[in-house]
Design a protein around this nucleic acid. Structure first.
Length: 651
DNA sequence: ATAGGGTTAG
């Protein structure tokens, strides 16, 4: 903010042509030496060599007489791989009359080192001394603003761009698009883009990336199509990374496949970033096998590639494999970071591997020196809560070194819903309300607990409360990809689909078949105080059933059905889909928030773990886990250190 | 005379 204030002050620029003395044209001897020095500077391969050349230049007196020599020293030192920003600054500070090139170098160097505030301060110095910024000053400076999310400073600098007459520069404008996007000011970002008379691929990349980073996936794809259709641009790697990310989030496996094909056909080799984006796209669009086989073939796997694979396997219910890949990651010498551990803990959680989860939680701190964040605690609460250890999960929350956030309390509430713990569920819900929660799911989970306990007054009170706070239940939707088009169905809504007749007929036929196999609607999750028949009617209208019916009438026998949901499915849809998978012999993959259910031969890959009624958590397991945790707490409290489960998970 | 913009997860 101080920077914004200073930037806002009026200032005058000295507009002389050169701020340094010119070398006399006649001095051929000195000119030749200068050329020699510059070529030596550019040949440097490490800092030691560079320091020697620096001394040489100093001895020849060129540091003072040739500003061009000094500029080259600074830029080489600041921008090379082996360079040192500190050393470059020390040379810079000795200059009597630094020119705009020198300032540009320093600003760029700081930006590349992620010292964004230093870059801004260097710019202020530049203004103060009266050196005129040019079109090379702004791209790195705007990048610094972008990484600081400094919208105020960014806007001031945008003003300076006008003032210095740089409105025609494509590079500066592309940086502005990016800066506004990173600051979350999408309208300004688009405004700069729209006003540009001459655009380049990078302009499109920047505006598409801006939409992608703010989660506007549909708009991201629309812009991409504009770019290649109307603009006639050939897409290149960087923009395709944003588009792949949009496909990933929208579940557009069809488009993602096209892009993968395009990349393979048009590029000789993919870099790790792009390849990881492709792997992530396949996995999160439901095609785990394809994603994993590409991952296995990858040569330059980095820790992000591993992270994608581990969380992918975990979300598809393949927890043990996720842990195997984690061990493999360590074996090849990559150090796991906090994000990878979130995936590892969630893998344990999905599979009910409580003890392993506790072990990994410890190993993270002891072996890899990563302090658990609120996210890791969230995973642990989920891990214990799902396994039925709700009181223990509550204890863990109480002992957290930081304030629990909504995710933590929501995990507990969800566990209370699964395991019918009304008392603790109320506590968790209360905390969520205190955190100013406007999440309809929280209210609905509490209502569901009340409904299962038959406390209908409390259920209706919950609905009243929702109305008062102004949150509405989001209608459940299921989208299914058929014939290159996404068909979206809404729960208990008027069916507008062109095939509505066939779909209704199919829904009827499916239920008839299911009943024949012993299916009975599970009305326990319907949070409405209405008669049984009406509850069954509500369940019949759930979007997932409509989507499956549509998929069955419009796709060939045996093909995989892929569904993307917006809210978590109910237990009735879960049971229903399992039975459909066996009766109609279909592999049905449902993306349910961040997890995937593979329904096949009458079973689900989640092993029903997120669905009531409570399972596992036999007394034996429960006692062992409680013991482990107790050791954890008391030893740490008494001795200030933790002595616990040291043995490493092996597979 | 020296140089520059857009790049994946949770």
């Amino acid at each position: 903010m101080v920077v914004a204030y200073v930037l806002n002050q009026p200032h005058e620029f000295i507009t002389h042509n050169q701020t340094y003395p010119k070398i006399p044209e006649t001095d051929h001897h000195s000119n030749q030496k200068e050329h020699e020095c510059i070529s030596l500077i550019k040949k440097c391969k490490n800092l030691d060599e560079f320091k020697q050349i620096h001394g040489h230049v100093f001895k020849l007196g060129l540091l003072w007489s040739s500003s061009f020599c000094a500029s080259n020293l600074i830029s080489t030192c600041a921008l090379s791989q082996w360079g040192s920003m500190d050393y470059a600054c020390s040379i810079f500070d000795q200059l009597d009359d630094p020119c705009s090139f020198d300032f540009n170098t320093i600003i760029r160097g700081h930006t590349m080192e992620m010292s964004s505030d230093q870059a801004l301060l260097a710019y202020l110095d530049m203004l103060e001394i009266g050196v005129e910024p040019d079109s090379f000053t702004y791209p790195p400076l705007l990048k610094a603003c972008a990484s600081l999310s400094a919208a105020g400073e960014g806007m001031q600098i945008h003003g300076h761009v006008f003032k210095h007459g740089l409105v025609g520069d494509v590079f500066v404008h592309n940086s502005l698009i990016n800066m506004y996007g990173k600051c979350g000011l999408l309208r300004d970002s688009c405004a700069v883009f729209d006003q540009m008379e001459v655009k380049t691929v990078a302009s499109w990349s920047a505006v598409i990336a801006a939409h992608a980073s703010l989660g506007m996936w549909g708009e991201c794809l629309r812009l991409f199509f504009c770019m290649i259709r109307d603009g006639g641009w050939r897409p290149e790697e960087s923009v395709l990374v944003s588009v792949l990310s949009a496909c990933t989030h929208l579940g557009r496996l069809d488009l993602g496949r096209c892009i993968h094909g395009y990349l393979v056909r048009n590029l000789s080799g993919l870099n790790a970033a792009v390849e990881t984006a492709v792997v992530d796209m396949y996995i999160r669009c439901g095609s785990l096998e394809k994603g994993m086989s590409l991952f296995q073939e990858m040569v330059g796997k980095n820790h992000k590639s591993f992270s994608v694979a581990i969380s992918g396997l975990a979300s598809h219910g393949r927890s043990v494999e996720a842990l195997v890949v984690f061990e493999e990651m360590i074996k090849v010498g990559l150090r796991p970071d906090d994000v990878v551990y979130v995936s590892v803990l969630s893998a344990c959680s999905h599979a009910g591997l409580v003890q392993e989860g506790v072990k990994y939680f410890e190993r993270m701190r002891k072996e890899h020196r990563i302090e658990p964040t609120v996210q890791h605690y969230g995973c642990m609460v989920d891990l214990m809560g799902r396994a039925g250890l709700v009181d223990e999960a509550h204890e863990l929350i109480k002992g957290m070194p930081m304030a629990p956030n909504d995710v933590v309390w929501r995990s507990l509430l969800s566990a209370c819903k699964i395991h019918q713990n009304l008392e603790l569920g109320e506590v968790a819900a209360e905390r969520l309300m205190e955190l100013n929660g406007k999440n309809a799911v929280d209210y609905l989970m509490l209502c569901s607990i009340y409904a299962q306990a038959g406390r209908w007054e409390d259920v209706s009170l919950g609905w009243v409360r929702m109305g008062r706070v102004g949150v509405g239940k989001e209608a459940g939707t299921s989208a299914v990809l058929v014939g290159g088009k996404l068909h979206r169905f809404v729960s208990n809504d008027a069916l507008h689909h062109p095939l509505r007749g066939e779909i209704r007929e199919m829904v009827h036929q499916m239920e008839w078949q299911l009943r024949f196999e012993g299916y009975e609607a599970d009305t326990s999750q319907v949070v409405m105080n209405v008669g049984e028949e009406e509850k069954r009617e509500r369940l019949r209208g759930h979007s997932q059933k409509l989507a499956i019916a549509f998929a069955l009438v419009s796709t060939s026998k045996g093909s995989v059905v892929r569904i993307v949901r917006n809210v978590r499915m109910c237990s009735d849809c879960h049971t229903y889909t399992k039975m459909i998978s066996v009766i109609y012999e279909r592999h049905i993959i449902v993306r349910d928030g961040n997890v995937y259910h593979h329904f096949k031969h009458g079973t689900c890959s989640c092993r029903d773990y997120c669905m009531p009624p409570p399972r596992l958590a036999g007394d034996d397991l429960k006692t062992r886990v409680v013991d482990a945790l107790r050791r954890y707490y008391y030893k740490e409290k008494e001795f200030g250190i933790f002595i616990g489960l040291n043995d490493v998970y092996t597979v």
